[in-house]
């Protein structure tokens, strides 16, 4: 067992953990912070994305012992006094989710993008989210939500013959 100290969503914790314990399992099973889901075993899906000392990581690809001494922010630490962040509001308003499984990872990854690039194009949003898989939405509304959170106009988009929304015209 190895002794670790971590600060998660503003709360300090100290624990004895097995070295093989993944950060994702530590958050979920030890701390009960199940807002961070685990979607795959291959580092592909990004559902478990959290912030570790200020940058995004896939918490299934970090050992809890590697987070010793660090600060972790999960999706559960974003809202302040029950008030959602602009990004969370945007996902809600733009319907940026269907089943919701990928949403915590999407929001954490989008947050990382907006910190580095506050006014991304829709292509830049797509690139920034390449490590996060969504199997429901086809990504269109996720991209719209991130652009909306960045304060960009949500354009009308094009419609195909049947009136369905197509294309990428969501940039300002």
């Amino acid at each position: 067992m190895t002794h670790i100290k971590v600060n998660v969503d503003g709360t300090p914790y100290e624990d004895e953990v097995e070295p093989r314990l993944l950060l994702a399992h530590y958050l979920r099973d030890r701390l009960g912070l199940t807002g961070t889901p685990i979607g795959c075993d291959t580092s592909n899906c990004g559902a478990c994305t959290v912030e570790l000392d200020g940058t995004t990581v896939k918490s299934c690809s970090v050992l809890a012992v590697q987070a010793d001494g660090s600060t972790v922010t999960t999706v559960q630490g974003l809202a302040k006094d029950g008030e959602w962040t602009a990004l969370q509001h945007a996902f809600h308003e733009r319907h940026g989710l269907q089943c919701g499984y990928c949403t915590p990872g999407m929001i954490m990854a989008a947050r990382d993008l907006l910190r580095e690039n506050p006014h991304p194009t829709s292509d830049e949003v797509r690139e920034a989210l390449e490590g996060n898989l969504c199997r429901c939405t086809g990504y269109q509304n996720i991209v719209r939500a991130v652009l909306a959170a960045a304060g960009q106009q949500d354009g009308p988009g094009r419609q195909d013959a049947s009136g369905r929304q197509v294309g990428e015209e969501v940039t300002a």
């Binding site: 580092s43 990004g46 994305t49 940058t55 995004t56 990581v57 896939k58 690809s61 970090v62 990854a109 990382d112 993008l113 920034a128 390449e130 490590g131 996060n132």
Partner: peptide
Amino acid sequence: VADPAVRHR
């Protein structure tokens, strides 16, 4: 290489 979160680590 991979994606932003992987490139951070």
